[in-house]
Amino acid sequence: MRHDEVVKGDTLHPGDPVIIDRYSTTARFNHWMTAASLVLLALSGLALFHPALYFLTGLFGGGSNTRAIHPWIGVFLFFGYMGLFFRFWKVNLWTPTDGTWLSKLHVFLTGHEEDMPEVGRYNFAQKAVFWWMGILIMISIASGLAIWDQYFSTYTTVDQKRIAVLVHSMAAIVMICIVIVHVYGALWAKGTMTAMLKGRVTGGWAWRHHRKWLRELAADEKARPGTPPATPAE
């Protein structure tokens, strides 16, 4: 059986309500580490981006420490994201449904999700976050290395560094915007936070937002009888 929308560990537990394991502990840990590094990067980066936010360097033990730590967090982010990437890249691949979904974006935004095409583990917007963050992180890493003078000052010219620093800050801004959307999306769709906090969602949540994924899981469940129901609470 094909598992287009399912990643390892996704498990449906029949019951009332239906409970589905969406994110394993390691996946959640991976996500939150990545999230934390993004937040720290944003804070330390913004501190050096605008004087009005320079006070944020206080969080990191002063300007010099902020300057020294920021790129290392970037390295951390890189590995964090790589973890997420290899875990989820397949289920973020483009499907024809994504096109249909995008064309009906206004419907989605006005809250009529029931009129949207059924989506798998991720909808178009989520996939966009996934890919855009990936691209932007790569851009940030590359441009970040070019301006990480402590170790790499000799590898680029000043002009290249100027481009790098501009690109780096622009990429960061876009990432922050995406993160805002991402966080808002998570908060907006009730039940989503639970997925990333506790690792599980209810069947209804899956029915509403990722029905195709639910269908696949349900089909798997049929094919694999005897799965014990999940304990409602851990």
């Binding site: 019951g15 009332d16 239906v18 209810t202 069947g203 029915w207 469940e221």
Partner: peptide
């Protein structure tokens, strides 16, 4: 939604 899900499952 929950009912639909349960039914599906």
């Amino acid at each position: 939604d929950e009912t639909n899900a349960k039914r599906l499952a």
